[in-house]
Amino acid sequence: MYRRDRPLLLRSCPAALYNNLCVLPLPASGLAQFALVHGSNCELLSAVPSGLPLSQRLLHAKEGAGLNLPLITQAYWCVLPFRVLLVLTSQRGIQALFARGIAASGHYICVGTWSGRVLVFDVPAKGPNIMLSEELNEHRVPVTDIAAEPAQGQDCVADVVTADDSGLLCVWKSGPEFKLLTRISGFGIPCPSVQLWQGSVAAGFGDGQIRIFEASSGALHVQINAHARSISALDLAPEAGKLLSGAEDSFVHIWKLSRNPDSGCIEVEHCHAECVTDTLVCGARFCDPKGSSFAVTGYDLSEILRYSCV
């Protein structure tokens, strides 16, 4: 069970974008960094688990003189082997009309675009010399989300998944050249959010369903009628196998994932439900790898709601 903690007050309300919350836990200092977007601004906050925010600032997207400011479409903390970067995507750029979907795999950062291309950037250990390494061209409609999981050096292990507005999921093995392993059809239903856990893909769809697939084969493990409206955010606490889902129906659910040792199938247990009354949930994230706390944002809600285990 979870209880509501002291919320974090915001300077502006989050935009009505799915996956509009990112959390970077800092275990050594006991802090968590929060990032969300509204219009051409990205708001950053740092806070201790149950206290007031320790710092708060706004990042402004800038453009050439006389032009309108670009709208930011997503903010995401990318944890790389030697550095941590805050990556922002926007509706304007040289490579794409708009970008959406961000994930880090090793020293690569993957960014999705409106055309369906996924841009793979090679990030050095230090300095600004970031190079475009590869373009992945399996999607034909706008990319919605990207997720990654450390492959721990194993061969032919799926460690990146990309999703799009048709619901198509593409599962990849990252490296100097990304290798496509599996294509999983979404039957025309958008997939706003996706996660990877122990070789399984958890995908949240526009019909409110969560589907869990085997990453290597695309076989369906579980289908859950989780929400009454479109899912807007998924997150995983890898150390506990907990899955967090938030949706436009104002509900946030927590599910416990486990793999049956005999059959190898994924089993799901519902653990907790929270209603954010009259609020379109647009972001939901765990605040630590064990899933002992989580945070929620909503459209026209001028605070980050926080919850922790009782």
Rank of each mutant, 00 (worst) to 15 (best):
S46I: 15
G112A: 03
G101N: 03
G199H: 08
G51M: 06
N41Y: 10
Q152Y: 10
I266F: 02
D164E: 08
P81F: 00
P142A: 07
E63S: 12
Q152T: 12
E267L: 05
Q152P: 00
Y2L: 02
H60R: 01
P70G: 06
M131C: 12
C265H: 09
V310F: 11
C275D: 11
L52N: 10
G241K: 08
V194F: 06
F251A: 07
A151M: 09
L301A: 08
G93F: 01
L26K: 14
L88C: 11
W114N: 14
L31K: 11
A148Q: 10
F187G: 06
I224V: 12
Y307H: 10
E177T: 14
P53V: 05
S232P: 03
E63K: 06
R57G: 04
S55Q: 14
E138P: 11
G204T: 01
S55T: 08
N260Q: 06
L44R: 07
P70C: 04
A295S: 05
K179P: 02
S29G: 06
D155F: 10
S105G: 06
G175C: 05
C287D: 13
A151V: 13
G30M: 04
E214V: 03
T144I: 00
A147M: 05
S185D: 14
A147G: 05
L71V: 08
L234N: 09
F121Y: 14
C156Q: 08
G51C: 06
P142S: 07
D159E: 09
A240I: 02
A273M: 14
A75T: 05
V281F: 05
S250R: 09
I102N: 01
K290H: 10
S166D: 14
G188M: 02
F187L: 13
C287I: 05
R11F: 02
T113H: 10
S263T: 15
C275A: 13
A65F: 04
I184M: 07
G208M: 04
I94Y: 10
S308A: 12
R183N: 04
G51D: 09
V310S: 15
R285V: 00
M131T: 15
H270F: 06
V296K: 02
G66R: 12
E269R: 15
A237W: 06
T182G: 01
V171N: 03
C265T: 14
F286P: 13
A284T: 02
D159M: 02
Y307S: 05
Q223G: 12
F213T: 01
E134K: 12
H272R: 13
Q95T: 09
S216W: 00
V48C: 14
D249I: 07
Y108Q: 13
S115A: 04
L44C: 08
C271H: 09
I130Y: 07
I224P: 07
